[in-house]
């Protein structure tokens, strides 16, 4: 990272505030320093505390200035219309993920005529639970009450699962039990499970209990995942210091070998294997760039015989 010019610090002090200058090493430019200072002040204003506001602002600025991600400092990250709680040890949701999750919600609620009796979604490597939570909220608002939602999130990290549950608790959109209560087929549920997606029992025992069987696999409308996808060399060189130093490595890269692919693509191989068994109607996987995207597309090609699809755009593997 290039060194910041001393004149920039002077400018921050003069034009914004000494606190902005303190934020500069983390923010890198005046505009984001000014924005973050404003957001820190607003946060202090909005959250009651017995500590004097000036002192709280100062403490938060000091923490942020030392490189702690703003989302850990303030404890949240907006994601769609939700404020997702963030804690050290669990990856902070990214704007790219937010964008496609919103897009996904629109597609799922618009593309179905007539509206389905139920919609089932599986999110692997769920982290804070941001993806299934936003989908639940958006679909809860847009789908008719006759459509049931069966949503599950899985992560290996106990910290992630307990945070995901806390987020679910805070953002539970479901109305208090109506009278008469909804029939079981109209229920809307989101459940988080702590296990590895590489666990041998995932396919044989856990997933079949979560989703009813269909003629070909399990009855699953969407498999979505934002798995760890950074390679060892990118982790050392192309990953921001704040990410490397403060976010969990477990969420970013997978070091071990598995089968025939590159280490950073291991999760996609496993995800496609899972998809081959479950045969979901749709699969969405986040990738780390065009090169990885192309490799994953080739993997999809290799799996498409297993998936039984002919690549007509209705199932998986249309992109090859």
């Amino acid at each position: 990272m290039p060194r910041l010019r001393p004149s920039l610090f002077w400018q921050a002090r003069r034009e914004i505030s000494p606190l902005a200058a303190q934020l500069l090493p983390a923010c890198r430019d005046l505009e984001s320093a000014a924005n973050e200072l404003r957001w820190i002040r607003e946060h202090v204003q909005d959250t009651p505390s017995s500590v004097p506001p000036g002192l709280r602002v100062w403490n938060l600025v000091e923490k942020r200035g030392k490189g702690v991600p703003l989302q850990y400092v303030l404890g949240t990250q907006p994601f769609g219309n939700l404020e997702i709680q963030c804690r050290p040890g669990v990856l902070i949701p990214r704007p790219e993920t937010e964008a496609y999750t919103l897009h996904l919600a629109t597609l799922l609620s618009q593309s179905q005529h007539p509206p389905p009796h139920s919609l089932s979604i599986l999110d692997l490597c769920t982290g804070t639970g941001c993806i299934p939570l936003l989908l639940l909220h958006a679909l809860h608002a847009s789908l008719p009450p006759t459509t049931a939602l069966n949503i599950h999130g899985i992560d290996i990290s106990p910290a992630a699962i307990s945070l995901a549950r806390a987020n679910h608790h805070q953002h539970n959109p479901l109305p208090a039990p109506a009278s008469p209560p909804l029939s079981p087929s109209h229920q809307r549920t989101l459940t988080f499970h702590q296990t590895s997606i590489f666990s041998p029992t995932l396919l044989s025992s856990l997933l079949p209990t979560l989703f009813p069987r269909s003629s070909s696999g399990l009855d699953l409308d969407l498999l979505v995942s934002n798995p760890p996808y950074i390679s060892a060399s990118d982790f050392a060189r192309a990953t921001a210091r704040a990410v490397r130093n403060h976010e969990p490595r477990l969420a970013l890269r997978y070091a071990a070998r598995w089968g025939w692919c590159r280490p950073e693509d291991v999760f996609y191989a496993r995800l496609l294997e899972i998809a081959a068994v479950l045969k979901p109607k749709r699969v969405l996987m986040e990738v780390g760039g065009m090169e990885q995207a192309l490799r994953v597309v080739r993997m999809v090609g290799r799996f498409s015989s297993l998936l039984g699809g002919d690549g007509d755009g209705d199932g998986d593997g249309d992109g090859s």
């Binding site: 964008a99 496609y100 919103l102 897009h103 919600a105 629109t106 597609l107 109607k281 749709r282 699969v283 969405l284 996987m285 986040e286 990738v287 995207a293 994953v296 597309v297 999809v300 755009g313 209705d314 199932g315 998986d316 593997g317 249309d318 992109g319």
Partner: peptide, 20 residues
């Protein structure tokens, strides 16, 4: 750009805009 991703996933990218 979401389009390649979504196509990969079997969505027809019907929208003009990238975002909803």
């Amino acid at each position: 750009s979401l389009r390649p991703l979504l196509r990969l996933a079997g969505f027809s990218a019907a929208h003009n805009g990238v975002l909803p």
